[in-house]
Simulated scan of single mutants.
Amino acid sequence: MNDLRSTERFSDRVEDYVRYRPDYPRALVDWLHGLGVRPDWLVADVGAGTGISSKLFLDAGHRVTAVEPNAAMRAAAARWLGGEGRYRALDGTAEATGLPDGSVDLVIAAQAFHWFDRDKVRNEFARILSPHGLVAVFWNSRRLTGTPFLEGYERLLHEYGVDYVGVAERYADDESMARWFGRGYRGMASFPHGQKLDHEALLGRLMSSSYAPKPGHPNHEPMLHALRALFDATQDDGTVSFDYDTRVFAGRTDT
């Protein structure tokens, strides 16, 4: 949505995003292969960002066309993946990818999906998808409860984050995703995932988030002090567990 500057708000956070954002479990790809996706299918990674989701499918043998409107993120992905012959990137948006009709077999949308115009993007995915293809939408959903660290981190974001609640509320629940796919819905799966982070990596992970106040904001320094205190109180042998559930939804969008 325009008020949250979805195509621009990560431009000054790219290096932290590259270094500290989590990847996705290979089990996600295996689950899609169980639905009939084949390694020779051409993948369009829409809202590809710095290439984390593209790398997952490249490692599984797919050819990947990454579609990303943010130039800084696209450049970071090119530095990482540009030497891979099965990878190419386009400057395009989710609602106007620039890809030809029926040209890809699997459309994936990862962590960026909650920024899309869901009605427009549903039609765009249907347009670019081949007759036998599928759409897969997935993201890492940070666990909010279960450990003192996870619960303290959520409190920290509510206290110091900038537009955190507005961003968090954009993630869809299972029922909303099923409705978005409609009659073409094939199902969903969830896989546990996580990172072990020392204090430096935890700070980088926080600062990769678009709602974390940057230096100069009145919340920035208090947030850093609160993060240090939280880490010191909850760390185990120098790290904390940043736990996720990777949720994936699959189907077609043209039925």
Rank of each mutant, 00 (worst) to 15 (best):
N2F: 03
N2W: 00
L4A: 15
S11H: 02
D12P: 04
E15G: 07
E15D: 14
D16A: 15
R19Y: 05
R19K: 14
P22L: 13
P22N: 13
Y24W: 05
L42W: 02
D45R: 00
D45S: 04
T50F: 03
T50R: 00
I52S: 04
L56F: 00
F57M: 04
H62I: 05
V67F: 01
N70T: 11
M73Q: 15
A75F: 00
A77S: 14
A78P: 11
A78S: 14
L81I: 07
G83F: 02
R86L: 06
R86A: 15
Y87R: 08
A89Q: 04
L90C: 05
D91Q: 06
D91S: 11
G92P: 02
T93G: 10
E95Q: 06
D101R: 05
S103T: 09
Q111H: 11
H114T: 11
W115I: 12
W115H: 13
F116C: 08
R118W: 08
N123R: 13
N123Q: 13
I128Y: 04
G133C: 02
L134C: 01
W139M: 03
N140E: 07
S141C: 02
S141E: 11
L150I: 01
E154P: 01
E154T: 06
H158M: 03
E159W: 02
Y164R: 14
E175P: 10
E175W: 07
E175A: 15
S176Q: 15
R179Q: 09
F181P: 13
G184E: 09
Y185P: 12
M188C: 01
A189R: 08
G194F: 01
L197Y: 02
D198G: 12
L206K: 09
L206P: 00
M207A: 11
S209L: 01
A212M: 10
N219K: 09
E221R: 08
P222I: 05
H225Q: 13
A226T: 12
A226I: 09
L230N: 08
D232L: 12
D232P: 00
T234Y: 02
T234D: 06
T239W: 00
S241I: 03
S241E: 13
Y244Q: 07
V248I: 12
V248S: 04
F249T: 09
G251F: 02
T253Y: 03
T255S: 11
